[in-house]
Design a binder for these strands. Structure first.
Length: 780
DNA sequence: GCACGATTTATACCA
DNA sequence: ACTGGTATAAATCGTGCG
């Protein structure tokens, strides 16, 4: 049989005592096909120091045989670009790799071990140059003894090749919402049965299983049967990892078989803490929400809202029990669960393309993509790139941290400027890495000779020119692919399916390219090399300085700049500068923005300005910070708006005074006084009794659950003790206890003054009550 | 023992 | 659980005072 198949998921398994790979696929016409490949080998590599690899094999093979080693052979590999002879050690099964490498460590025959931490399914994808969530050209045959899977045809793989096809087959997708209710606090699987499971599928079918209170056995059985009959490729949820663990616990108690895998296996918790289901992809959208620092509560509602989805008021979780116990309200709860299932499916429509593209490009299965960090995504890509040039994959070891200098930030002079253009280097770091061939395997260590190489401008780090490294290759592919995709996008109908796929792809290509610099400087990276990250930053500073120098020569005035941008007063020579950048620096730059009027304080990374269309844009100032009270942010924005639009200082001052008066009179909603801060460690781990920590402790004392990463909202109450002790969780405070004077002195005045001090206004001018003071300002 | 400046701790932002 | 650069607030430390 010859077919085009789309790879959904893969895993390793055993067939007649031999370790094999299972590939769960869907064909062009929607058939579900399981491919079994029994031709795979488990192996890793070892290097010898000064001795000969032949000798090392001869000396160790007889003993290693006892540990499951089938074969040892010499092969040509590279370590950081240097060709070496490595010994490939083929082992009968995955579980013996650790035993063998452990034994090798003791033998001392070999110097170093490589790739003993690569799982078989990953190894398979790398070797075959294929990725999940993409098309394969497969030749396969029928064979006896293959596993029997319902709804699946099973074949043995003869050959398998990657296919460059952008389309996505029709997948069976199932969004689920699991309703769990606890009488007091969060539900516990030990005694709280699952109340309902709502399902919404890609066919538009809605299904709900409910439990009338005593036992959820029937609910769980019905749910499992539904999965068996619908046979989804993808199961979606929000917090579904927790849901599965809950269901696993429940199924044990009510003696249910949770056979939801395509081989009827139970869900299993994988090493990374996520739940996997054989043959299906289980995606927890909660992991995507956790990546968004804008969110405070990480509820599904808040997450959906951040994606632009409008949802009405919901029943809060702490009222679930009340609703459930009231027969007239019970149905509202079930209705809400239904809506959540639909909402999760709607989110897939927004996020799905992105997840598939990320999977296709990194080689990680869809269910790993959201759980993997940015660094691991980049690394997954790099490992494949490394294989293609015979580069051995370094072990994942935490390296000691050595700091280095980053981007150049210019000191702005406080004041208001007009007609300011922002010149931006596009993808500066990726382009620098390409231009100077910066990669861990092109780096020349000190002491080694190099005839012709790139030398970094400050530290003098050298990079060879005659060999393309893993970073260079990765960046070149990503940037070229992105260019091609963006070109194709131009001739694609906006809003069409193709457009969505291409757009998701170009976004993912950019994200991956931009991650690589950070990856290089991450001490946990397999390909960490401080010199690489350091050199990139050096050439970045060099590029900005050279551009500034040229701008000055051309008579252009520079106001500010940060890392890869320069703020310059618009002038006719700007075009000449752009041309110079393109021709002399061979870098890409563009005029990203134009401010009609822009205000700088004396601080770096903080400014606000009016764009051509009149939009007010604020960067870095309190307005855009989450840890200032809303009233202060609102006031600062007002002041900024007045100043940039009218330049009328007195108008701004009287505006602020009005807010101050209102605040002192308590005419401000408590909501606008809440200060939010995120917990970065458990409350008891803090060295300093900061306001938000004390507020968190108070919540904890009252039975709230505070996790690392949660945002704590507090307000400052009346009293004479230090601020921290007067900080109380906003949920527990009444308006009469608020210390309004704190908000005037520590929030309103500093926020407003940040802008107004540029115009010579001081604290006195804002706090003085008299009308005389207002009139006299600026007139002496 | 207290006031006050210096230093440390913590957070959130920019690129 | 990708980097460094930066501003800022509040807690805490350290020192001079007497």
């Amino acid at each position: 049989m010859k077919a085009r198949l789309w790879l959904i998921d893969l895993n390793s398994d055993f067939l007649l005592g031999k370790e094999v790979v299972h590939l769960w696929c869907v064909s062009e016409n929607g058939e579900r096909i399981l491919l079994v490949d029994d031709s795979v080998e488990n192996f890793f590599f070892a290097t010898v120091g000064n001795g000969s690899p032949e000798e090392a094999i001869k000396a160790s093979f007889p003993e290693l045989k006892k540990y499951g080693v089938l074969r040892m052979e010499i092969c040509d590999k590279r370590i950081l670009g240097k060709p070496i002879k490595a010994v490939k050690i083929v082992v009968d099964k995955s579980e013996n790799i650790e035993r063998v490498s452990g034994r090798l460590d003791k033998l001392k025959t070999f110097q170093k071990i490589y790739e003993d931490d690569i799982r078989l399914s990953t190894r398979y994808l790398i070797e075959k140059r294929i990725t999940p969530s993409s098309w394969l050209e497969v030749e396969a045959e029928e064979s006896p003894n293959l596993p029997n899977i319902p709804n699946f045809k099973t074949f043995k793989v003869k050959s398998i090749e990657p296919l460059e096809l952008g389309s996505i087959p029709n997948l069976r997708i199932m969004a689920i919402h699991v309703l769990k209710v606890g009488e007091k606090g969060s539900p516990k699987p030990e005694y709280d049965p699952v109340v309902a499971i709502s399902i919404f599928t890609s066919e538009g079918e809605f299904k709900q299983f409910t439990c009338d209170g005593r036992s959820d056995k029937k609910l769980i059985d019905d749910f499992v049967n539904y999965i068996k009959s619908y046979d989804p490729d993808i199961i979606l949820g929000y917090g579904i990892t927790e849901d599965w663990n809950y269901l696993i616990e429940r199924s044990k108690r009510v003696d249910s078989m949770l056979e939801v895998g395509r081989n009827y296996a139970k869900p299993h918790t994988s090493v990374f803490g996520h739940v996997s289901i054989t043959g299906r992809i289980c995606i927890d959208l909660f992991h995507d929400a956790r990546d968004n620092p804008q969110l405070t509560e990480y509820t599904l509602d808040e997450y959906a809202w951040s994606l632009g989805l409008k949802i009405g008021p919901q029943i809060p979780e702490h009222k679930y029990y009340e609703y459930l116990s009231d027969s007239s309200k019970k149905n509202m709860l079930f209705k809400q669960s239904e809506e959540y299932a639909r909402l999760i499916y709607t989110i897939w429509n927004i996020m799905g393309d992105f997840i598939i593209q990320l999977s296709q490009l990194t080689g990680l299965p869809m269910d790993h993509v959201l759980t993997a960090s940015a660094g691991h995504r980049a690394e997954s890509y790099l490992m494949r790139e490394a294989y293609s040039i015979g580069e051995l994959i370094p072990p994942r070891i935490e390296k000691p941290y050595v700091s280095y200098a980053g981007g150049l930030v210019l000191q702005p002079q406080k004041g208001v400027y007009e007609n300011v253009s922002i010149l931006d280097f596009s993808s500066m770091y990726p382009n620098i890495m390409l231009k100077y061939n910066i990669s861990p395997d092109t780096y020349i260590p000190s002491g080694e000779q190099c005839e012709d190489c790139f030398v970094s401008p400050e530290s003098g780090h050298r990079f060879r020119k005659d060999y393309r490294g893993v970073y260079t290759r990765m960046l070149q592919s990503l940037l070229e692919a992105r260019k091609a995709v963006r070109e194709k996008l131009k001739s694609t109908k906006e809003g069409s399916l193709d457009y969505r796929i291409l757009n998701a792809r170009q976004k993912v290509l950019k994200i991956l390219a931009n991650t690589l610099y950070g990856y290089a400087g991450w001490t946990g990276a397999r390909w960490y090399l401080r010199e690489v990250a350091e050199s990139v930053a050096e050439w970045g500073r060099y590029t900005i300085r050279a551009t500034m120098e040229k701008a000055r020569q051309l008579g252009l005035r520079i106001i500010y700049g940060d890392t890869d941008s320069i703020f310059v007063i618009d002038g006719e020579k700007l075009g000449e500068l752009m041309k110079w950048i393109e021709e002399e620096l061979a870098m890409e730059a563009r005029i990203d923005k134009f401010y009609k009027r822009i205000l700088f304080t004396e601080a770096k990374k903080r400014y606000g300005g009016l764009l051509e269309d009149g939009t007010l844009e604020v960067v870095g100032l309190e307005v855009v910070r989450g840890d200032w009270a809303e009233i202060a942010k609102e006031t600062q924005l007002g002041v900024l708006k007045i100043m940039l639009e009218t330049m009328d200082v007195n108008k701004a001052i009287s505006y602020v005074r009005n807010v101050i008066t209102d605040t002192r009179n308590g005419k401000v909603d408590l909501e606008k006084l809440v200060i939010w801060k995120r917990m970065t460690k458990p409350p008891e781990a803090y060295e300093v009794r900061a306001p938000h920590v004390l507020a968190a402790l108070e919540l904890l004392k009252r039975g709230w659950r505070i996790d690392v990463g949660d945002k704590v909202g507090y307000v400052i109450t009346k009293g004479t003790s230090r601020i921290g002790e007067r900080a109380k969780p906003y949920q527990l405070v009444e308006s009469k206890d608020i210390d309004y004077e704190y908000y005037v002195r520590n929030q309103l005045v500093p926020a407003a003054l940040r802008i107004l001090e540029v115009f010579g206004v001081d604290e006195q001018a804002l706090l003085k009550e008299s009308r005389k003071g207002l009139m006299s300002f600026g007139t002496g």
